[in-house]
Design a protein around this nucleic acid. Sequence first.
DNA 1: TGTTTTGAAATATGTACAAATATCAAAACT
DNA 2: AGTTTTGATATTTGTACATATTTCAAAACA
Lengths: 199, 199
Amino acid sequence: MTQLKTETRGGARPNAGRKKGSSPYKESTQALRVPDSLVLPIKKLLEQRKAQLEALGKMTTELYFPTQAPPLCVLPLFAGKVAAGFPSPADDYVEKNLDLNELLVQKPAATFFVRAQGESMLGAGIHPNDILVVDRSIEVTPGKIVICALNGELTVKRLDCINEQWLLKAENPAYADIILHDELEMVVWGVVTNVIHSL
Amino acid sequence: MTQLKTETRGGARPNAGRKKGSSPYKESTQALRVPDSLVLPIKKLLEQRKAQLEALGKMTTELYFPTQAPPLCVLPLFAGKVAAGFPSPADDYVEKNLDLNELLVQKPAATFFVRAQGESMLGAGIHPNDILVVDRSIEVTPGKIVICALNGELTVKRLDCINEQWLLKAENPAYADIILHDELEMVVWGVVTNVIHSL
DNA sequence: TGTTTTGAAATATGTACAAATATCAAAACT
DNA sequence: AGTTTTGATATTTGTACATATTTCAAAACA
């Protein structure tokens, strides 16, 4: 015969139980059926989402990470020559399939975009209104093109160091270099890895 | 009492039953639990995948569509000024969240990538080794930058029409324009919408 | 002999459910 | 009075299962 224990701890009471939104995604989930080949990519995405939310929890500011995700998209990349007409897969025109996010974003949690203004970096292929891909995890060294806040103003320049003097160099003869002295408040946001130019 | 019907059609036999891979994805599926905010995007992706596979069934050649999907990726886009340090969401530095595929690929089924060669289009911001985003669904009109096969050679130029004479113009004084005459076999692949430049 | 109809079998798919996990107020302990 | 332990409860989460769908060979038909 089993002893009936009358436990007095725990028990029914308001506010008991697991809280809504206590999943790693901070929101409810639902079961979705997806094809095998998409399982791994989507799982990767879910891990990434979790990591972002975790990072978010440690930040004082918010909004750095998206609340909604976009559609996946992989498209073929062609290269080389082509017999007149559209290329055939028999020939090796298809270099490989390419995903833009994979190509341009190595570390999602450390990457953001900035829209370029001005013509000071034309020589580096950066035109007004271009979108710059910026990686905050890359080491800032002389020669790198960086996004920085100069006295509160966002700017893109090539960082350089000549005779122990740090410079921000424009890649356009019409613009003067900026010498970094103590009165100048300069904060580097990250290193520009790619430029997206719309025609 | 129920009448026991002895059906003679159908019945046990080899090769009966639904075939493996008879799903719209041509492969097996599995249930995956995803956060609410990802449900719609992923459903969109699944629809896209189905549409691609359907289109594939109607094509003679393959390989235009990917067999494996990439990770999703949305990142913030910043704009404007910034108080020294990293931007705060209280200010409006965050222009919007941005997905590269969404930004650069309007029609996945009509879009592909080509790697640029040569310096003939420097003036349009196209450098050697840049990746060009090409949309085959955009109408080819004078002024557009197009990818075309010229006697089997892949090239990128600006299409123009002067006095009813069609031209392919380079955007670099060092390169001559190409006049389109009957002996020249020219097939337009599509219109260049974006240029991706690596630093 | 060629065409159409038919139903059992095999796979596909949405979801219900059981098991796992997190939460917190009250009890027990210092 | 403050800290730690405890267990009922609410939610999350993986997956088994019931249902729907597709397929094909044999039977029925023309």
